[in-house]
Design a protein around this nucleic acid. Structure first.
Lengths: 234, 234
DNA sequence: TGTACATCAGTGAACGCGCGTTCACTGATGTAC
DNA sequence: TGTACATCAGTGAACGCGCGTTCACTGATGTAC
């Protein structure tokens, strides 16, 4: 790449998508961030198949990013640090989706289908990220599992807050809202895992998974409607 | 005919000295089966921690069973075949539990607590087996994932049949019974995964997990009570 | 402005190590007579 | 019954390979003056 010198000073760009170069500098900083991205993307690409993170080798990832193994260490202290970067990258995608979904309005009975679709579409559109999360959720090293669990708990908590604003759920105690949110997250997580195991082209199978999850969600909502927190402690 | 030994667990290594006496044979066949067991147990022992199956080496498993790497091939053609043996071994444990649970009676509202407890106690008592299943369910090689998925589908199917005999669920279509069974399995599977990440001594945390799962199950049952299959296709 | 020096992302060779697999072998167990 | 031979689970050495990590290095980019 030729360097396009723009003396805007040292660029301090924070946002970066996969191809974002709204402010390409061509400088040393920019090149470094670019290689870091290449490493993360190389790892995600390797993980999109049936490989698990713990089975990836440092050399393999470096190869995928077209740098020598030694250069890997200019970006991460080792594979574990790369793992953390992958978690961050993956959940950023999830948070973004949550933000969008929340902007669309609170879940209600008639919104179940739409919510399930939004979420599962997002999973299908970010297979590598969610495939990584699904695999490492139980298989990863302790630190990685703990990091994922923390993010999931945060997510459940956010959903519980959203639900609390929903008048029909006024009967729910704070604890029971967490329980309900956990159940709803279970439903979409289980469906996500099926989505990840279905080829994107198999629309029919995907539709079946969507409908299944939607039904489960609706049944859960029916249960929530009949729930009475004051009786739930026995 | 299976020889029933008291301590069937994976903590056992192939130490000799006190061999069980009269019942077994001591012959070549018996010794071979014994070493095969030692290999399976060694693998399960290694998997009980945070290791995943794909990260195990053949030499490591052989070492755990106190045989040379070359002798491994007298029992399995390679690690993948050992993986299948592990699946068989793990689900045998699950089927046994299902048989016992079914003998206890069909699930009913008042039986929710007992059912959840029976299942989660079983998981806690067979950590190595269920830890293996939980990890490989999404992380394993395709053949192993497919084998696990098949077993889970069977399990959901069995549960659906059990549920169909339950008068209060007369309103359910066959498809919706599968959906409900899937949801119930989701609840206990999610809880199992929490159980596996909790030290067995932390009774308080375990109780919290049990109560949480029980509540979710009860909410699902409430939803089932209000469900109407004839309206569910829209 | 140009020059001299500093920084540092990436290189390529080297190392010791554990891996999967093969091979000829050993010696206890099993069997035919 | 004893003897001679067959079977085969397990041994131990050997192989080539990819691994993680280290090291001195290169050369483009950045900066001080």
């Amino acid at each position: 790449m030729r360097s396009r010198k723009r003396s805007d000073g040292p660029s301090q760009t924070a946002g970066d998508g996969e191809t974002a170069e709204a402010e390409p500098d061509g400088g040393r900083d920019w090149r470094k961030r670019r290689t870091r991205r290449a490493l993360i993307n190389a790892a995600l690409a390797l993980l999109e198949g049936e490989r698990s993170f713990s089975s990836l080798s440092l050399r393999e990832v470096a190869r995928g990013a077209r740098i020598t193994p030694a250069a890997f260490y200019r970006h991460f202290s080792g594979m574990e640090e790369l793992g953390h970067a992958l978690i961050e990258d993956s959940f950023e995608s999830l948070h973004e989706m949550m933000r969008k979904a929340r902007a669309g309005g609170l879940p209600s009975t008639r919104m179940i289908r739409a919510s399930v679709k939004v979420f599962l579409d997002h999973v299908g559109a970010h297979r590598a990220h969610f495939s990584f999360i699904a695999k490492e959720r139980f298989s990863g090293s302790t630190v990685i599992r703990v990091a994922i669990r923390k993010e999931v708990r945060l997510w459940v908590g956010e959903l519980a807050v959203d639900l609390s604003r929903f008048p029909a759920l006024g009967k729910f105690s704070a604890e029971d809202l967490q329980m309900l949110a956990g159940l709803m997250v279970n439903v979409v997580v289980a469906a996500s895992e099926l989505v990840l195991d279905t080829p994107p082209k198999d629309k029919e199978a995907l539709t079946r998974i969507y409908r299944h999850a939607e039904k489960q969600m609706r049944l859960v909502m029916l249960g929530a409607g009949a729930w009475d927190s004051s009786r739930s402690s026995g």
